[in-house]
Nucleic acid binder design. Structure first.
Lengths: 159, 159
DNA sequence: AATATTCTTGACATATTTTGACCTTCATGC
DNA sequence: GCATGAAGGTCAAAATATGTCAAGAATATT
């Protein structure tokens, strides 16, 4: 069973494909009408599915002639990719957040499945060492794991 | 006598076979119902049997329309390669020996440049953490680093 | 026989989706 | 200017999934 959120996500992605554009403009109310849902559902879809981590930027304007603009981000140069990494690997990530990030990066083809698997094996091993040898609390382990991911992704960004 | 965990493991594997797919999607509660067990038993099976080290990636999402997705990344004919790994990652390696091994694997096209870079960045970071946080002597760090390489290569041998 | 490891269970914690009531912003006509 | 109506935004509750953790039971190892 596909959720409403997934349907709307696919619809928006199909609009982007169809226009073979990196950008589309929507009316929130109209889109909500298409799916027979409440307008704020659209906000939820945007906030959960069209995030920078997934490679999108969303702009909007209220008031008369208001709109929602969805932009697919293209990472062209090394500089762009490094900044992007800094943006999406922000603060300290829990293992769950880390796994989700890796999944998203694979979906965007910024990581291969092998690279993702390697990283998961390594993160598990490092975590195991930190807990069983050094009895480190979860928060400290998350700090180290996050920094590891940050460094790896940065190093890959420049290749 | 087969344990519940083993039964569930076989059942999931059979689902993957049956669909001849590299991926299945489950509902934790439903699967628990099939075996008349507690839902968290499913987590135990996933954590102990469907690890990246064994060639699986597990993704999941909580909440409404939640799911558990199991991705198989393993192929057949693994035995030889595993033995080979045991041979080449023998004993404890120094950082120099490790780098030479990784370079060699890249030249033989068993690792890509990106994968080798990932590993080198990770090994350097782990070593740094072990020194600066825990003041571990060199031979202990080499043990950990060697084990890390062994695990990663084993999991890659499966893929 | 004693100890260590793995398995099983259940109480409790956390995350996601959907909906609706209420808030904020802005272009436009007067 | 400024009131108005037409946008989009925020927040919280309810429903519904999965995750975590620890204790006890079952098995394996020494």
């Amino acid at each position: 069973m596909e959720s409403l959120t997934e349907k709307i996500e696919k619809y928006i992605r199909s609009l982007l494909e169809a226009n073979s554009a990196d950008e589309i403009i929507l009316r929130r109310k109209e889109l909500a009408n298409v799916f027979g849902c409440v307008p704020s559902q659209i906000n939820y879809v945007l906030q959960s599915r069209f995030t920078p981590e997934r490679g999108f930027i969303v702009e909007s304007q209220r008031g008369g002639n208001g709109y929602i603009r969805i932009i697919r981000v293209c990472l062209s140069g090394v500089e762009d990719r490094l900044n992007h990494i800094e943006e999406i690997v922000d603060g300290v990530m829990t293992p769950q957040e880390t796994r989700r990030l890796l999944k998203n990066l694979e979906e965007r083809e910024l990581l291969t499945l092998r690279e993702r698997t390697m990283l998961e094996v390594i993160l598990r091993f490092v975590d195991e060492v930190l807990v069983s040898f050094f009895d480190l609390p979860a928060y400290r382990r998350d700090e180290i794991n996050t920094e590891l991911v940050r460094r790896v992704l940065k190093s890959l960004a420049i290749i």
